[in-house]
Structure formats: structure tokens, C-alpha cells
Simulated assay, not measured.
Amino acid sequence: MWQGSAVDLDAYLKRVNYEGDVAANLSTLRGLHTAHVDAIPFDNLDALLGRTAVPLDLGSVQEKIVRQGRGGWCLEQVVLMAAVLDRIGFTFTAFAARTRIRTGNKFGPALHVALCVQLDGERWLHDVSFGAYGPHEPIQLADNARLDGDWSFDLVREPTGERVLRFLRPEGPAELYGFTTDVRYPSDFELLNHFCLTHPRSPFNHRMVLQRTQPKVRHVLVGTVLTEIRPGEPATVRELDEAEALSAPEEIFGITLESRDLQALGKTLADP
């Protein structure tokens, strides 16, 4: 189902600069998680630039993210990561989550996807595709679990039974998303992908959304508003001018675009 036999594991490991051991254990899971979020940004540019499709087949995802060095939105990144974990020998399922950050809405559509990995009788939330607010390592999927460090997170359970992943910031905890671990399949991803690409209420098809997590700084660009987050400090927010916004994909997020795509992006910024 996850096409592990078809993934180019060596090329992926090179793309994310991972040089550690590769085995179905917690050390590898942590290492791959951190390497992936450091190297691969969240990128909605294909939808913004009017692509008629964002393919989720493994071949297309590898071509875009691994060989072209682009980012991708969560569905693309989960397809890639699931194939990698399957190839290595991990046992896991996928689930969908209702995003709360920036919306505050607990009842929106479940558009985000992540993985639940089973290791030695424990379950781990493995989410490499939530962008600059997401965890940099797996967090144990258990009540009141915490991930502490420069970037801290916890999991709380609500009376409905949903778990909520929270980003613990100096200004207070930020609820990222609520979820159950009901199993989702690649066929479900296709439906979510279609919504994100075409629906008028999709948050991803009418303005630029780029995000990246690095060890000491995280960046979020929504439209022309750039948020910078550093450990233990309040977030800073500023508006970019058109030239800054046009250069941001490469200079801040490490995304190199072809000249025709840069021109098209410039038009979206000039006439949002």
C-alpha cells in the first residue's frame, strides 16, 4: 500500500542529509524526522500557480521533492515519508487531523495527515509535514505526553476523545490540531488533495503558504506576512514588500523555482 519497494531510499537520505543508521527503531525514526523537517519545507506553490493537479503517486512526489529539491504540502510529504518508513520496515498507519492553528476552529475539515508508528509496544505521532509549527521529533502518542527541548510540545485529550497536539510557546500553548487515530488510506488522501487544490474555502489555493522548521529558527510565510519563531522568544511578524516576497522562497525556504514560475508568482503577488 505504501510502495516502500519503489522508493529511492539512497536519494531520499541524501536529500535530507541523513547519515545515521537505518533500522526500524526509535533512533532512526527520530533522526529521519529531524532531518526531514530541516531539509524539506511546506510548499503550496503548485496550487497557487494554477497547476491543474498536484499528483500524489510516489513517482511524481519523488521527482518533485527528492530530485527537483522542492517542498510539498502535507499530503505529498506523507506519501514520501510513508514509503521511506515502509522500505525500512516500520509498522504504521495514517490518520487525519483538524487544524486549529490560525483558525481556532475545532470543527473544520480534517485536511492534515500524519502517521502513527508502532514500536516496541508504544505508539508515536510522526508528523513531518505540519510546517513551522510542527514537532521536530516524534512524540509518544499517549495521554499527557510531552516533548521538551528548545521546541516543546504536548498532547492533551479532550472530553470528546480527540487528542490535541499543542506547541508550547512563551506566550502560551498554541493548539495545532485535534485528531483521532482512525485509519486513513492513500485513497482518502486523493479526496483531501482535491479539496485543497480546488475548493473555494481551501486555505492553500489562493495565497502563498511556505513553512520551514530548522534547529534554531522557524519561518511561516502566509501571503506576504512573514512570521519568525525562535526558541524561548515571542514570535515576530512583519509584512514583506513585493520584491522580498518574491525572493523569499529561495532565500528563506530554500526553494529554487524556474524562471517561468517566478514570473507567475510575481503576477499573483501583484494581483492577489
Rank of each mutant, 00 (worst) to 15 (best):
L141M: 13
G104H: 10
P138D: 04
G108C: 11
P135M: 08
G108K: 08
L141V: 09
A132Q: 06
L119K: 09
S129D: 04
G131H: 07
A110D: 06
G131R: 04
A114Q: 05
P135W: 05
N105S: 14
I139C: 07
Q140H: 08
D127R: 07
P135S: 12
K106L: 14
F130W: 10
V128R: 01
L141S: 05
L115G: 03
S129Q: 05
A114H: 01
P138R: 00
I139W: 04
K106T: 11
L119D: 08
P109I: 00
L141F: 14
D120P: 05
V117P: 04
A110W: 01
L125D: 00
P109R: 13
L141E: 02
A132S: 15
F107L: 13
H126L: 13
P135E: 03
A132W: 06
P138F: 05
L111M: 13
A110N: 02
Q140F: 01
F130D: 05
G134D: 06
P109A: 02
K106R: 15
H126M: 12
H136C: 08
L111K: 01
Q140Y: 02
G121W: 12
Y133E: 09
F107C: 08
D120W: 00
P138C: 03
L125E: 02
P135A: 10
W124H: 15
G131Y: 07
V117K: 01
C116V: 12
E122I: 02
D127F: 09
K106V: 10
I139F: 09
D127V: 04
Q140K: 15
D120F: 06
D120A: 15
N105G: 02
E137G: 06
V128P: 00
A114W: 02
V113L: 03
N105V: 11
R123D: 13
H136S: 14
H126N: 12
R123A: 13
W124S: 03
H112Q: 11
F107T: 15
V117G: 02
H136E: 12
K106W: 15
F130R: 06
